[in-house]
């Protein structure tokens, strides 16, 4: 029987593959994954803009992708040719990439791995309901010279 730790790591690998596929397929630029680490202390690792997805069903928790404005702006420019996107567009892009990365994991985990619509925010919101007792796995990534974090929190 697969241990909880092995199960958690296997799930993390699904997210790593999902992020890699997103950037490769849409931008033809590979993303680099730095060494992932477990975050034990309280608080979130955040960049300027974040898209967060709630996870329910067979797993409980969340996943978010956080990056600075420039990374989301580069993606928007590649997709629709807007060089100076609005803040609304930046937040929209953060939500969409989080949605795609989380949704693609269902190819392996099935329909019981349920995801919410994205919650998007700039900076650190005053109110954010993060489940207690989750293990947070931080995956630092670099795409097109932009640094970002993919953070997976699972019960």
């Amino acid at each position: 029987m697969e241990s909880r730790k092995e199960e958690f790591e296997a799930t993390c690998n699904l997210f790593i593959n999902s992020v890699s596929n997103y950037f490769k397929h849409l931008t033809e630029i590979d993303s680099d994954m730095k060494v992932p680490y477990l975050k034990e202390s309280d608080g979130l690792v955040l960049k300027d803009f974040t898209g967060m997805i709630g996870i329910s069903g067979s797993r409980q928790g969340f996943v978010y992708i956080s990056a600075n404005r420039e990374m989301f702006a580069d993606l928007i420019n590649l997709f629709i040719g807007i060089e100076d996107p609005s803040e609304e567009d930046i937040l929209d892009m953060a939500g969409e990439i989080s949605n795609v990365v989380a949704g693609n994991v269902r190819a392996n985990l099935g329909a019981n791995f349920m995801i919410s619509v994205p919650t998007v925010f700039e900076g650190m919101p005053e109110e954010l309901n993060i489940p207690e007792n989750v293990s947070m796995y931080v995956i630092p990534i670099k795409w097109n010279n932009h640094e970002a974090f993919v953070v997976l929190g699972l019960d």
């Binding site: 596929n21 997103y22 397929h25 849409l26 949605n99 795609v100 990365v101 989380a102 949704g103 693609n104 994991v105 269902r106 190819a107 985990l109 099935g110 329909a111 791995f113 995801i115």
Partner: peptide, 26 residues
Amino acid sequence: TALADKLTGLIALDRGARGFMYKPVN
């Protein structure tokens, strides 16, 4: 859709969708 499981695709086709694509789509 981003929901890449087979069941969601089958449900959509059963409900009348003519095609089904998984995001990310280029």
